[in-house]
């Protein structure tokens, strides 16, 4: 293997310093506003290393803003966000990969080149970047689609490639913004199972924003229910652990159903 690729070699999915131990996310007294409009007010959150936190809340409550704050794409009006040791936006950007709502695959690149974008941005040669991303294609059921253009892929496949692109970035923290919102119910259920498997195989610290309570409870260790703007946490609960491999079984479990009702109640009731 050429010297250049070694830095980001086969096991580089995790960068050297933050390695397999993962990085915790800590949010303290976070405030954010767009001018007069307050979107987030005194928010505290903790996600342990390799923990998966779900954020559920009404539309427009500032969930996406919160994710961008965590990812280092925005600066808070007050309070602080820390990813491990990383406090300032550049340090957060270095530790967090962001998966937007739409897959945003670049239509001029093949599936594998889309997945390998982060490696290419870091200066890895095309061949080496493809090889590395290709290993993940095999592991995550995308083998054979490396050369396909995004337009040739189904919605679920595109979302998988988009997730691999996030994974290949090798950041210890993943910020996922409603990753499956645009998919139909059946594909979404499949993708949730797939993501659960992917996170088991390659654990990361995840903050997942969704409007789907069931998705949050199935995929996450903990779920926080946010109020309408300005966002505050109105309810926080542990999801049933460990994640059952079979999604249908998991979501019909009485304990799961009870938690879902609790979360939905909190979502509807807002404060109390």
């Amino acid at each position: 293997m050429p010297a250049k690729t070694k830095e980001f070699g086969a096991d580089s999915a995790l960068p050297a310093s933050d390695d397999a131990l993962g990085v915790a996310v800590s949010v303290r007294g976070l405030r954010h506003s767009y001018g007069e409009l307050s979107t987030i007010e005194r928010l505290d959150l903790d996600v342990p290393a390799h923990g998966v936190l779900g954020l559920v809340g009404p539309s427009g409550c500032g969930k996406s803003t919160l994710l961008e704050l965590i990812a280092g794409l925005r600066e808070p009006t007050g309070g602080e966000v820390a990813l491990g040791e990383g406090l300032d936006p550049a340090a957060r950007l270095a530790r967090c990969a962001f998966m937007p709502q739409r897959d945003l695959l670049l239509p001029w690149l093949s599936a594998i080149d889309n997945a390998a974008l982060a490696l290419r941005n870091r200066g890895v040669r095309r061949g080496a970047a493809r090889r590395e991303a290709g290993q993940l294609f095999e592991r995550f059921g995308l083998a054979g689609f490396e050369r396909s253009s995004p337009a040739e892929l189904s919605g679920g496949m595109r979302q998988r490639v988009a997730f691999l692109r996030t994974l290949v970035a090798g950041k210890p923290v993943l910020a996922l913004d409603e990753p499956f919102a645009s998919l139909d119910a059946i594909t979404r259920a499949e993708m949730q199972e797939w993501l659960a498997g992917a996170l088991d195989a390659d654990p990361r610290t995840v903050v997942l924003v969704t409007h789907d309570v069931e998705e949050a409870l199935y995929l996450c260790d903990r779920v926080a229910v946010l109020s309408a703007r300005p966002a505050r946490i109105v309810e926080e609960m542990s999801a049933p652990a460990p994640r059952a491999a079979d999604r249908d079984e998991a979501v019909t479990d009485p304990e799961f159903v009870a938690l879902r009702e609790r979360a939905l109640h909190a979502l509807r009731g807002g404060t109390r």
Binding site: E68, L93, M99, A118, N121, R165
Partner: peptide, 8 residues
């Protein structure tokens, strides 16, 4: 934003 978090 996506490209920025991918270190572009």
């Amino acid at each position: 934003k996506m490209m920025r978090t991918l270190d572009a």
